[in-house]
Simulated scan of single mutants.
Amino acid sequence: MAARIDHLVTSGTFSLDGGTWDVDNNVWIVGDDTEAIVVDAAHDADAIAAALGGRRLVAIVSTHAHNDHIDAAPALAARTGAPILLHGDDLPLWKQTHPERSPDAELTDGQVITVAGTELTVLHTPGHAPGAVCLYAPGLGTVFTGDTLFQGGPGATGRSFSDFPTIVGSIRDRLLTLPPETVVRTGHGDSTTIGAEAPHLDEWIARGH
Rank of each mutant, 00 (worst) to 15 (best):
A75P: 05
L107E: 03
H188Y: 09
E203A: 14
G110D: 09
D173F: 06
P126T: 02
G18Y: 10
G187I: 11
A49E: 08
A77K: 00
G110T: 05
A41I: 07
L135D: 08
T145R: 04
D46H: 13
L149Q: 09
G18A: 08
H98C: 05
I167Q: 03
R207E: 15
H128G: 12
V39I: 15
A42H: 07
V23G: 06
L120G: 15
A72C: 09
L8T: 04
A36W: 00
F14E: 10
S15N: 03
I37V: 15
A82Q: 01
D32E: 03
D173Q: 09
D40E: 14
T10C: 08
A206Y: 00
E106M: 13
D17T: 11
A2R: 15
Q151Y: 13
T148K: 02
D163E: 13
A198Y: 07
A42D: 01
G155W: 05
T20P: 07
S170N: 04
L57R: 00
A75F: 07
G208V: 04
H124F: 02
I60A: 05
G139V: 04
A3N: 03
G189E: 09
A206V: 04
I205L: 11
G88M: 04
G110Q: 09
L85I: 10
K95H: 15
F14A: 14
G131W: 11
